[in-house]
Design a protein around this nucleic acid. Structure first.
Lengths: 159, 159
DNA sequence: TAGATGGTTCGTGTAAGGCAAATCATTTGT
DNA sequence: ACAAATGATTTGCCTTACACGAACCATCTA
């Protein structure tokens, strides 16, 4: 029976801020990434792929939440640089299992290092601890597949 | 496998994750925002404007990190719905001081409420406390103007 | 009075990405 | 065994978000 405190704040939705900061990082990242032959969306794809092991392209499309046909193109670019590998799935040979190559892991890592300056600039207001907190929150949130399933979207076949 | 010690981890750059999550929220937000006559970038602009009081369009362009000419169009749309107001600055009547109207504040708030379901879905892996943490980190980071200065980016060009 | 400067308009160009077939290989249902 | 469904790929069209340049007006500043 405590009197309700004034919980009437603007709801604190993170969406717009997320969007805003993402844009600012993306813009700067472009120039840093260019020499590495990567563009922001490549980074996103590689990052997602590192997070979840190999998965079908459809599952990847679902995760990235982009059209399947465009994922093909994206993967083509990454495969052209040998950063990812498409193997046919042994269980269902129509499927391609997409996975980072060692070169892909390296390149991703290199890129991330190259982005140090960028994040320093954009996240300048946060100290090391805060940035680490931010990272783990983002990672935790991103780990959840989007729509229904993603976690095991691969082996749902038999049933 | 990886008999690696604890060091040398991938550096934990948040950029790609930020981008990824922002995209996922943005996509869903579009449909939710449409009935309100808003699009994601309007939300961003309104949010930024709420964060920092009235400022010149140039300053806003700097903050949003987009081209000045495109900011004009964006503001036109917002002004057409009376969500923002352009007043001529008394000090320098060339300048427009952009500010949220009451209607703008309301609409922003409405939009944010409408986004509850969206964030619930995308940030589903985070509990209330974590989301609040995330919000405050993002806000703190966003508060910092981008390039050199933004806080008082108005009167700077002598030297 | 002659520049700069803020804002506005218009026009052009590009990249991201959605959406709709058509194709091929493979799996599955009957 | 064969027809239908499915994953991946390709091609083509179309929209949106922006960047960028040029011209223009109002205003400030030297």
């Amino acid at each position: 029976m405590a009197p309700l405190p004034v919980e009437n704040q603007p709801a604190h939705r993170s969406g717009a801020l997320l969007d805003h900061l993402a844009r600012r990082i993306r813009l700067r990242a472009e120039s840093v990434l260019a020499p590495l032959g990567l563009r922001p969306r490549h980074l996103v794809a590689l990052t997602v792929l590192r997070g979840r092991g190999g998965c079908s392209q459809q599952a990847l499309a679902t995760m990235l939440e982009m059209d399947g046909t465009n994922v093909v193109g994206l993967l083509n670019e990454l495969e052209a640089e040998a950063l990812i590998e498409r193997r046919r799935s042994p269980e269902d040979r129509r499927r391609h299992v997409v996975e980072l190559t060692d070169a892909g892991v390296d390149r991703l890592c290199t890129a991330e290092c190259a982005l140090a300056a960028v994040e320093n600039e954009v996240l300048g207001a946060l100290d090391e601890t805060q940035r680490e907190t931010l990272y783990s929150l983002l990672e935790q949130a991103a780990a959840n597949g989007g729509p229904p399933n993603c976690t095991e979207a691969v082996n749902d076949r038999e049933r």
